[in-house]
Amino acid sequence: MATAEIELDAGASAHPSTLARFYREHERSIIGGGTLLAVLLIWEGVARSGLVDPLFLSSPIQIVKAGIDLFEGGEIWTHIQVSGSEFLLGYALSVAIGIPLGLATGWYRRLSYLLGPFIDALNAVPRLTLMPIIVIWFGIGIWSKAVVAFLGAVLPILIATNSGVRTSEARYLQVARSFSASELKIFTSIILPGTVPFIFTGLKYGIGRALLGVVVGELYAATAGLGYMIGEAGDTFQTSVVFFGVLIFTATGLVSVGVLDALERRFETWRPKAGAAS
């Protein structure tokens, strides 16, 4: 009996209908995309019904229209260029400093004693409280925003890298020592590969923090940039423009994290595919 049932079951799953198979293969996109579409439709419907003042809510179509107007007006290119430079400068700097410093403080105990208090303090302070000083030091041009973005992103990258080094698995270190590996060899063959996933976690988290730095910095003091544009639009009740600005930031964040994900997958071919619970 039992065998017959198992065979029956196997037969059923071997030839599912085309539609069912399509659904199973794309379940994630269908559920995710469907929900997103539903929210947009409800939003548009509510806005059109006149239940809520469009000044508060805008609507998906109006946001798209505002976007088209902005690009036709041409001024938005300047904002994108300014915000983009600030983001890229700040993020690049935080990667260039965060990863090496994270590796070094994880590896050299005394260096972590030396820098620990500063890192902890900087991590504890809400970085935005430093905004006035940063503006005094770096002006209201792109550098002050790049610095805020840097301060936001460098700590997650540094701390994640540091803990990656410190949680290196003892048994791999023991293997290396047993084979008389040099300190340099231990670092490159055991520590570094084990830290890569941690670095990527920090890098992805850093993206959001750098974007946050750019927006808030521009809201606080700037003469151009998408944050500045959002602030201006908010002051003049151009809800659609505000939403469009938010959309650009969201898209930038998603794309950046997507690029990092793809990069991580290339680094991590050795890792078992896991965590895909259905």
Binding site: R171, Y172, Q174, V175, R177, S178, F179, S180, S189, I190, P193, G194, W270, R271
Partner: peptide, 17 residues
């Protein structure tokens, strides 16, 4: 440790990467 001795470890401890 030296090359005159080599250990076969308890949990294989292969470097996963």
């Amino acid at each position: 440790p030296g090359p005159d001795r080599a250990v076969v470890f308890q949990d294989a401890s292969l470097l996963p990467w």
